[in-house]
Each structure stands twice: as structure tokens, then as C-alpha cells.
Simulated scan of single mutants.
Amino acid sequence: MYERMLAGDLYVALDPQIEAAGLESMQLQDRYNSTGAEQAELRRSLLEELLGSIGEGTTIRPPFRCDYGSSISIGSWCFANFGLVALDVAAITIGDHVQIGPNVQLLTPTHPIDPDLRRAGWEAAEPITIGDNVWLGGGAIVLPGVEIGADTVVGAGAVVSRDLPAGVVAVGNPARVVRDVR
């Protein structure tokens, strides 16, 4: 099931290997989220252990929550404010110089429409890609399979359900482009 999950196929999350990976991730997150601001080196070390990759100068303020962490790649000089939730059943790729407001959610999991499949515990996921120099306003939600182009601004509380091109401002639910950034 773990291999199916990583491949983006339908899988059942109640697999022992998947549960073990999730438990290990939660333990690292608990350690990270209990650190104080004066423990910058420990925080960095925990993020390096938890995440697939993290660039130079990147800061994530606790609390931070994810499914596994290993499917998250964050570029250099990014900042994520309090309360980031990044459900990384599929890959989450974040470029350089990305600003993430408080309580942003990056959600890769999907669930079948068919009630019998849902009841049986089947799920899947689609990756999220966030380009360089993007700003996600507080409370924004990015849904499975979305790609956000470089230099784009997503307004606070927006729900991004479709790809956004580079260099635009998008707001609302669902997020819609309202203007270019320049």
C-alpha cells in the first residue's frame, strides 16, 4: 500500500507501513512544535530530519503539521507563519522565497466519490507545486493537484482549486485571478 500511495494510486491508509511512517512523523513534529524560539539550531535539525528537503534560510514557525514530511520539499529563504498544515500524501514542492501566512493548508489527499470505496478506506493524492516568490495569504487553502506559478499572490482565505498562472493576484472561493501583480 505504501508504494501505491507514493505512486498516486488508490491505497488504504490503514497499512502498517503507512501507519508507522505517520507515527514517526508525528513524533518529530511534536518535538519540533515544543521547541522555543531560542532553539533555532534544534528546530533546523528537526526539520532536516522530517522533511524531504529544506533550503537555506527557510523558517517554519510552530505549530507545523504534516502527514509524513518526507514528501515535502521547500526551497531557500521561505517563511511559513504559525499553523501551517501540509498534508503530504503526494509531493508538495515549494520554491524559493515563498511567503506563507498563518493557518495555510496545503492538502494533497483525495477521496473517492463512490461511498463504498470511501467506506472501505480507499484514498489517493495529487501533488501540489508552488513556484518561486509566491505569497499565500493567511488561511488560504490549496487543494490537490494545484500548481501555482511564480510571483503569484493568493489572498487571505482563498481556496485554490485550479492551477494559477505566474504573476497574478487571486482571491476568493474558488480562487479567481483579479489582476496581474504589476
Rank of each mutant, 00 (worst) to 15 (best):
L42K: 13
Q29L: 15
A37N: 07
T35E: 13
T110F: 03
V178M: 05
T93C: 02
P115H: 02
Q39C: 07
R118P: 10
D30Y: 08
V169N: 02
R61W: 10
L106W: 06
G145T: 06
E38P: 02
E56N: 08
A120P: 08
D96M: 08
V104A: 05
D30R: 09
I113Q: 06
A80Y: 04
Y68T: 02
V171N: 00
D9G: 10
G83D: 11
P109L: 12
G138Y: 01
D88R: 03
A156E: 01
D96F: 06
E19D: 12
S45W: 11
A90R: 04
H111F: 08
A21Q: 09
T35W: 09
L42I: 09
E3S: 15
G131A: 05
D96Y: 07
G69L: 06
C66E: 02
S73E: 13
V85N: 11
I141E: 00
I100V: 12
D132R: 12
N81G: 05
P112F: 11
L117R: 15
Q29V: 10
P63S: 12
W122D: 03
W122V: 06
L84G: 08
T93M: 04
N81L: 07
A150G: 02
R179F: 02
L28V: 11
R118H: 10
A40T: 15
P112D: 02
S53P: 07
Y32T: 09
P112Q: 07
T58K: 06
G8L: 14
V153N: 00
S45H: 14
S161W: 00
A37L: 14
D88E: 05
S34E: 05
R179D: 02
A140N: 02
E3D: 14
Q17I: 13
P16S: 12
A20T: 11
I148K: 00
L164I: 01
P109I: 09
H111L: 12
N133Q: 12
G95I: 04
E41F: 02
R31N: 12
I54N: 05
M5R: 08
Y68W: 13
D67A: 12
D114M: 07
E41Y: 04
G57C: 07
Q17A: 14
Q105P: 01
A124S: 15
R179W: 03
A166N: 03
P16G: 07
A20E: 15
P16K: 13
L51F: 06
V142T: 00
P174V: 01
P165Q: 06
M1R: 11
V146Y: 00
V98D: 01
G22H: 14
T129E: 11
I18T: 11
V159I: 10
P144F: 10
A21V: 11
I130T: 04
D67P: 09
S76A: 15
R31D: 15
Q105H: 13
E56F: 03
Q99T: 11
I128S: 04
D132K: 10
